[in-house]
């Protein structure tokens, strides 16, 4: 069973406030390109939003694919996060993920993916339309 964020796409308006708060809290600046969640909008056709993020699946092929064991277990949550210091930005996790849940940071120096803010996901706290949910 997936332990990640759940997104009710029908409610999404594409405001990207999730991306703003994610970058603000992870890297100390507002920069959607450095967010661990990504909202794609496809207008005028078909006129919908797609939200990419790590779903924290049980199979975690990213962990298996990583050649340097940079994707580590958060014991508290039972989910995996990328250890920036160890990651070499080789992209193996990006290729292995079937959910488009991780990608290389714009600096090109490491892979980024949702770490659930260590149990207090900021995107969930900010989302004004109740699109994003986590936990029960």
């Amino acid at each position: 069973m997936s332990k990640g964020l759940k997104a009710d796409l029908g409610k999404c308006t594409g405001c990207q406030m999730c991306m703003l708060v994610c970058s603000g809290s992870h890297v100390g600046k507002f920069n959607p390109s450095e967010a661990r969640i990504n909202v794609e909008d496809v207008f005028p056709e078909p006129g919908e939003f797609k939200i990419n993020h790590c779903v924290h699946c049980d199979e975690h092929p990213c962990v298996e694919a990583c050649p340097v064991e940079a994707i580590k277990l958060n014991d508290k949550l039972g989910t995996y996060f990328v250890d920036r210091e160890t990651c070499t930005a080789c992209g193996a996790c990006v290729d292995a993920c079937p959910y488009n849940g991780c990608w290389i940071d714009p600096s090109g120096s490491y892979s980024i993916k949702c770490d659930l803010c260590d149990g207090d996901p900021q995107c969930v706290a900010v989302c004004p339309k109740g699109v994003l949910k986590w936990g029960d």
Binding site: G28, K29, F30, N31, S33, E34, P106, A125, V126, P128
Partner: peptide, 26 residues
């Protein structure tokens, strides 16, 4: 652009804005 925007006091801005979104906007 991928350069981002840096503010003076992220630690006080983030909680304030989260509160304002709830009370002053939505």
């Amino acid at each position: 652009g991928t350069l981002g925007v840096e503010v003076n006091d992220m630690d006080s801005l983030l909680p304030m804005v989260k509160e304002m979104i709830k009370t002053d906007v939505v």
